[in-house]
Amino acid sequence: MKHVIPKTYKEALEHLSEGTYKVLAGGTDLMVKNRSWSETPARFKQDMLYIHNLDELRYVEDKGDHLAIGALTDYETLLRHEAVPKVLKDCLIEIAGPAIRKVGTLAGNIGNASPAADGVLLLYLLDAQLVIERKGARREALIDDVITGPGKTTLSNEEMIKEIRLPKSTFTKTQFLKVGGRKADAISKVAFAGAVRIEDGIVKDLRMAIGAVNVTVVRLREVEKLHTGETISAVQDSIVSIKNAYVPHIKPIDDQRSNRVYRKRVAFNMIEDFIMNMHIQD
């Protein structure tokens, strides 16, 4: 097996074009998954590309209509950047602890594609566009279209995420609510992110994303659209039908961290809590 530290992003794409490499960014997921006995090397099953020191992929740039985040930008850096939306920061500060946040990246979170990944939840909420490149080609895709299941993405072996774009939006209220086993250093049992923009009592933009309740993050754009343009009270009066719309999609599992009954109940509580309090501004 080959282990390579590319010197430039261009060189990284060059290696990737061979189709045999796995990209390691922060390593916080891959090093755990491929853990071996201490004092022995990690048991990776394919060629590895260590891109951690490609500083050219570390940037946060305000592009007017969107925020461009380089793939290797770590959570701690995002937390300190003024242009990063508050709701994303509310989420990031609850991810693991500082030492993990210093190497953890949104791109890595996407690559890992865990349904319980908090960062990914926020990317769904914020309509994140991913810039994905391979040698000589580039595509852009909505986050929903890249993650297809637990640990599954549409990224090919030759591709890597170069940049994450967050379209600018204005919200009158946002919410990130996560239940972990404890208040830090915890993988979500269930997590919720919501955002709304209300103007003159009319709901102009409504978004809700729920994590760890299905194989991918649940975001129902059609339900959100249905209630866009309604008055606050009209939306709140529809709480039963809104929750009903989510019923087929909230299908959590039992595991070592929680159980399906609890996850389901709390997911609906979170939806209701957000809808019924969406008029109370931050």
Binding site: G181, R182, Q256, R257
Partner: peptide, 25 residues
């Protein structure tokens, strides 16, 4: 702190799944 077993196999077998308090708890 939650630990239980399923058919004799402990379900929480590392510091990620067996939860002890952190400084914010």
């Amino acid at each position: 702190e939650v630990m239980n077993h399923e058919n004799g196999k402990l379900k929480q077998k590392n510091m990620t799944d067996y939860i002890i308090p952190t400084s914010v708890d």
